[in-house]
């Protein structure tokens, strides 16, 4: 079984997770830039984070045979801090990089005017750069948040086929599917969505333009939820081909629209199992 996790925050995960993910079949992933838990206080902190997603994490992932790509953006929560808005002016430079396969994650957190502006501006940046976008739907007031998100997407120059609507659930899936956007579901231990509910949604809505991710981060989450959902699909009578479509072909098709997907991880060079002063495999020095 081959798995592509289209949304996971490896920055918050350990090398044990990388090893377990590889064993479970994960061969590729996309890491969106996001809120780090501790609010940032300057744009430079974002640039260090972007550098990490363009340097350290792909290097780390490659040690475990996993191809790493990223999406970059000013996240919704921090779009409300005026000190951080210069990030929007620097993004064009970063969106040119080889392993940036989308703008994201963008969207709404508290649905403020500042979030409106950042979302609209970054959808335009995606259109300017020929990139798709990954749009997070808010955790609070989700149905209203989705409606407002869809309005902004419709007003943008980005075609719905270039947009992921993420963290969907039973109350938002129908509107998301009707919009023509890709529908993504974050499978969590006990909150957003679980494996069995996901199977029921796939039965009702089919496997077209459907994405399953672990969205694992520093909170209670599980980087193996993609595999567990695949197993639940098989147990419920879906075929291997269905599983491959949802957990590999769909993310490849969506992010492939960037023209920048490379599904072979860069081979670590001889003796190169260290980076920025850290020995990753603990086998070298």
């Amino acid at each position: 079984m081959r798995i592509f996790d289209p949304h996971i925050h490896m920055t918050s995960r350990t090398t044990d997770d990388y090893a377990a993910m590889y064993d479970a079949g994960v061969r590729a992933l996309v890491e969106p830039s996001f809120w780090l838990g501790q609010p940032r206080t300057s744009p430079e902190s974002f640039y260090d984070c972007f550098d990490s997603l363009l340097g350290w994490e792909p290097f780390r992932a490659a040690q475990y045979g996993i191809a790493h790509h990223c999406t970059l953006a000013l996240n919704p929560k921090e779009a409300n801090d005026p000190r951080l808005l210069p990030v929007l002016d620097e993004l064009p430079r970063y969106l040119l990089k080889d392993h940036v396969v989308a703008v994201g994650e963008i969207g709404y957190d508290s649905m403020t005017p500042a979030e409106d502006r950042a979302l609209a501006a970054q959808l335009e940046l995606a259109a300017d750069h020929g990139l798709p976008a990954i749009v997070h739907t808010p955790h609070r007031d989700k149905a209203a948040g989705l409606a407002r998100t869809l309005d902004v997407v419709r007003e943008s120059r980005l075609a719905p086929g270039l947009v992921i609507l993420d963290h969907l659930n039973e109350t938002t899936v129908a509107a998301a599917k009707d919009s023509g956007c890709w529908a993504a579901f974050s499978i969590y231990p006990d909150t957003k969505m679980d494996e069995d509910r996901m199977v029921r949604i796939l039965r009702e809505y089919g496997t077209e333009r459907m994405l399953v991710n672990s969205a694992a981060d520093w909170g209670r989450s599980d980087p193996l939820k993609t595999r567990k959902t695949a197993d639940a699909m098989l147990a419920a009578g879906f075929t291997d081909a269905d599983v491959d479509k949802v957990l590999w072909q769909n993310p490849v098709e969506f992010y492939g629209q960037s023209g920048r997907l490379e599904l072979e991880p860069e081979k670590p060079e001889a003796g190169g199992a260290t980076y920025e002063g850290n020995s990753i495999l603990r086998g070298g020095s």
């Binding site: 002016d89 064009p92 430079r93 040119l96 080889d98 300017d128």
Partner: peptide, 18 residues
Amino acid sequence: GPSAGLLAWEAHFAAARR
């Protein structure tokens, strides 16, 4: 270049591998 503060060659430099 394609955006403010970015010369055309800087964008080419980033895109060279593709």
